[in-house]
């Protein structure tokens, strides 16, 4: 078994896929804690769709996919964070519109693309095995930046997300910390979406933190559990996909969501 594993990861494409899964997935899982606690899960679903539209436009315009992913993620963050002004459509309405239009337009743009690419649909189907070295390095860089910024400014992120009004009265620049959080989220989604598709990105964002939040009521345990589950899901999912000839992205996403059921049972028993 160990020999099989060792052999499996002698292939370069497997190592790149694992790198994106572990670093990108672990980072998205960590950011998912804030997505859950701030009650913006719908936004987490809509953002990958807008990022997908960015990637589709990049394909159509013959630009690097990563450029499309980053721009798509950032434009999505900008649009969704400024929507929902009083008297207009509620925030959920904007998020729903973004979800529906982002996903459908991405497919339409791809269909109309003058530069058809055989691998263009891999970010929809989640074929993580197509990941290249640059994409793997990008995932490491974004995860490293996110880890550093959150380590240094952890309490600022928590306090400004937990009670923005009180934070503002204390002079904390809430908009700045929100922007930084969403920037990390935008780049994180771009890093994973670009290689492994929206399914894996959303699965990582939602599954591991949901399981950790069900089991623990203190931040240190929630954070460690979430990151371990996210990174572990990438390894387990990728290995399983290789051994059983399954699609990589969806198998990793399934592994990311799998701990939710046992966590829910654990919570019920403990209650």
């Amino acid at each position: 078994m160990m020999a099989d594993l060792r052999e499996m990861y002698t292939f370069e494409f497997m190592r790149y896929a694992l790198t994106v899964g572990v670093f990108g997935g672990g980072m998205l899982a960590f950011l998912g804690i804030f997505v859950h606690l701030r009650r913006i899960v719908f936004l987490g679903a809509a953002l990958p769709q807008i990022t997908a539209l960015g990637i589709a436009l990049a394909i159509a315009l013959h630009l690097p996919l990563l450029v499309g992913a980053v721009l798509g993620g950032l434009v999505g963050i900008l649009l969704l964070s400024t929507s929902g002004k009083p008297g207009h459509l509620p925030t959920e309405g904007w998020v729903g519109l973004a979800y529906a239009s982002g996903g459908s337009l991405a497919i339409v743009v791809l269909a109309l693309s003058p530069h058809p690419d055989a691998g263009a649909l891999r970010f929809f189907t989640g074929d993580v095995l197509g990941t290249n070295r640059a994409e793997a390095l990008f995932a490491i860089a974004v995860a490293g930046f996110t880890a550093l910024i959150f380590r240094l400014c952890w309490s600022k992120f928590v306090v400004s997300s937990f009670d923005p009004v009180m934070s503002q009265t204390l002079g904390l620049k809430v908009r700045r910390w929100n922007a930084l959080l969403f920037l990390c989220l935008g780049f994180g989604l771009a890093a994973v979406m670009n290689s492994a598709g929206s399914m894996l990105a959303f699965g990582m964002l939602i599954g591991p933190p949901a399981a950790a939040l069900m089991c623990f009521r203190a931040f240190p345990k929630v954070v460690v559990t979430t990151v371990v589950l996210g990174a572990g899901a990438a390894f387990v999912g990728l290995t399983a996909s290789f051994l059983f000839d399954l699609p990589g992205g969806p198998t990793m996403a399934t592994a990311a969501l799998a701990p939710v059921l046992p966590a829910w049972i654990y919570r019920k028993i403990r209650k």
Binding site: L37, S155, V158, V159, L170, R217, A218, F219, K221, V222
Partner: peptide
Amino acid sequence: PMRVRDMLQFTLTA
């Protein structure tokens, strides 16, 4: 997921 003392500590260190 915060304890009482965590919330106060976070506010102070923020």
